[in-house]
C-alpha cells in the first residue's frame, strides 16, 4: 500500500511536470512574435516571393550594364546600337577628361532599387492574387539593394500575415541574393578610369592597359573600341556568366 502510494505520487509529479512544461512552451509561442515562421508543408510562401524579386533585378541588370551603370544616361554615345554612358568626358582637345559618379556604389544601389521597386511591389501583389484562398495582410515594404563581392543582396522586409481558417503565420523577411560580378565590374571600371584620367596627355596614349588588367582579374575579358572621333568604349565581360559592362570615355582627344 505504501509502495503503491509512492508510485502514485511519482506518477502525479511526472504528469504535473509534463503539464508545466507544456504550459511554458505554450506561453512561449503565445507571447513571442516569430520573425520567420517556417512555411506550411504544402505552401512555401517565402519561395513564392523571393524568386520574383530576384527576377526583377535579373531582368533589368543586363540593360543597366550595357548602358554603363545608367538606365537613362545623360551624356552618352551609341555603341552596338545601344546608348552607352560616358564615365569620363571632355569636349576639349588634348585635355584630360573629368569623371562623373558612375562608379559610386551607393548611387548604383539606389538607382537599381528605384528601377525595380515597383516590380518588387508587384511581386507581393501577384503573390496575394495568386493565393485567393488565403487571407493575406501586408505591412509596409522596406526594400534595399546592397552590392557586395560576388553577389547582390536584395533586402526586402515586409510583415505579411497569412491566414487560412484557424491557422495563421507571419513572415517578415524576404531577403535574397543574386550571384553577380557587379562588385568587380565597379572595381575594374574604376581602375580603367583611374588609368585614363591620370595619363600624361597628350604625350602618352590614355588607353588603359587592358591586358594588364586581364592578368589581374582573370575572370574577365576586357576590350576597347576607339571610334573615329576619339571616343572609346570599354567592355568588361565575365567569362562565366557572360555579364557585360560597357562604358564610354572621351579623353585626350587628338583628332584633328
Amino acid at each position: 500500500m505504501k509502495n503503491r502510494g509512492k508510485k502514485s505520487q511519482i506518477t502525479l509529479f511526472i504528469v504535473l511536470g509534463i503539464l508545466v512544461l507544456v504550459g511554458i512552451i505554450s506561453l512561449f509561442f503565445l507571447f513571442s512574435k516569430p520573425e520567420f515562421v517556417k512555411p506550411t508543408k504544402d505552401k512555401d510562401f517565402y519561395n513564392e516571393i523571393t524568386p520574383c524579386i530576384k527576377k526583377t533585378l535579373e531582368k533589368v541588370l543586363p540593360e543597366y550594364l550595357e548602358k554603363g551603370f545608367y538606365f537613362d544616361p545623360n551624356n552618352k554615345l551609341v555603341y552596338q546600337g545601344k546608348d552607352v554612358s560616358y564615365h569620363c568626358y571632355t569636349s576639349a582637345k588634348k585635355t584630360i577628361c573629368t569623371r562623373n559618379d558612375a562608379q559610386s556604389k551607393t548611387r548604383i544601389e539606389k538607382e537599381l532599387k528605384e528601377k525595380i521597386l515597383s516590380d518588387v511591389e508587384n511581386c507581393f501583389k501577384d503573390f496575394k492574387n495568386s493565393n485567393p484562398s488565403y487571407k493575406i495582410e501586408m505591412g509596409e515594404l522596406n526594400f534595399s539593394i546592397e552590392i557586395v563581392p560576388k553577389r547582390i543582396n536584395l533586402k526586402a522586409k515586409r510583415e505579411i500575415k497569412i491566414s487560412k481558417g484557424e491557422s495563421e503565420q507571419i513572415i517578415s523577411n524576404f531577403d535574397s541574393y543574386l550571384d553577380s560580378s557587379l562588385w568587380d565590374l565597379i572595381k575594374i571600371s574604376n581602375e580603367i578610369l583611374n588609368q585614363e584620367s591620370s595619363c600624361n596627355c597628350p604625350v602618352d596614349s590614355c588607353t588603359a592597359d587592358t591586358i594588364g588588367l586581364m592578368n589581374k582579374y582573370n575572370d574577365y575579358a576586357i576590350t576597347f573600341f576607339t571610334g573615329s572621333k576619339g571616343d572609346r568604349v570599354y567592355t568588361i565581360k565575365d567569362y562565366y556568366n557572360k555579364t557585360k559592362l560597357n562604358f564610354a570615355v572621351k579623353n585626350c582627344d587628338k583628332t584633328p
Partner: peptide
Amino acid sequence: ADGCCFDVSSGICSLRVPYNSCPSPN
C-alpha cells in the same frame, strides 16, 4: 574642381572626380 573621391562603401578611390560627383558619406 576635380579631386579624389573615396567611396566608403566599397573602399575604392576614383581620380579626377568633381566634388559634386562624390556625395556624402564618400
